[in-house]
Amino acid sequence: MSQVTRQKPDTVYFFGTCLIDLMFPQAGVSAVQLLQRAGIKVIYPPAQTCCGQPAWNSGYRDEARKVARAQIALFTKPIPIIIPSGSCAGMMKTHYPELFSGEADEAQALDVASRVYELTEFLVDVLNISLTDLGAPIEIAVHTSCSARREMGVADKIEQLLGQLQNVKVLEQAYKPECCGFGGTFAVKQPEISAAMVADKTMHLRNTGATQVISQDCGCLMNIGGAFDYQAKHENKKPLNTQHIAEFLWERTHG
């Protein structure tokens, strides 16, 4: 198994995630730009699709494995794999080993898992990136996804990155570590509970007075942002922007 050192590599793989591919491509583009600006060559295997998490979390393990196997085949070089999502990174890092346990290609799965970095983790821990804020003063709130927080243990990284931006003030919402209610298929299978959770989450975020909400996971953003939009359209509440950390960082720091 290849050991990834914490030394700055020349080249990395980028796994864009299906959600970003379809719904939030700008987050993916920004992430690639951040990496390139740091002098890293980025490889984006075009045959990539999805990490397999939706099926994995629904109990369809064979189906998840089939999709995961197709990804594993694309990331064979001994270089880091950067993922702009705590939840997809968590899938590859912690669940691929379970998913492939006892399978013929278990070693390859473990190898891929060992090279996975969540984007903010990589920017802080490996690149030790330094940022100069070029944006106007703004007050934001941060929502860290549960997988970034608990599965990947990287909740502090996004805060460290934002802490470097002089004109950005991060406001603290109540119940910060609590789940936004997305949970993939949970939002569809238990819509009432999920709705109650996102109602509370958006309320606490609104109460901070922030004008923008930043996260490292587009699943949460789709949920929280969708609720903000709905509330603006149907409940006469103030619209609130949501944005992926990569896009936010890129927008504020490129000349």
């Binding site: 980028f14 864009g16 970003i20 591919d21 379809l22 719904m23 939030f24 491509p25 700008q26 993916g28 583009v29 690639v32 060559k41 980025v42 490889i43 984006y44 295997p45 075009p46 819509p191 709705a195 996102v198 109602a199 789709m222 949920n223 969708g226 609720a227 939009d229 709905y230 359209k233």
Partner: peptide, 24 residues
């Protein structure tokens, strides 16, 4: 019932990175 429908982007990340010439 509590959120707007997620909007699919004009161009996928695949398409955009290809256009930007990111290595394959």
């Amino acid at each position: 019932s509590v959120r707007t429908a997620p909007a699919v982007a004009d161009k996928t990340l695949h398409q955009q990175l290809k256009a930007l010439g990111v290595d394959h």
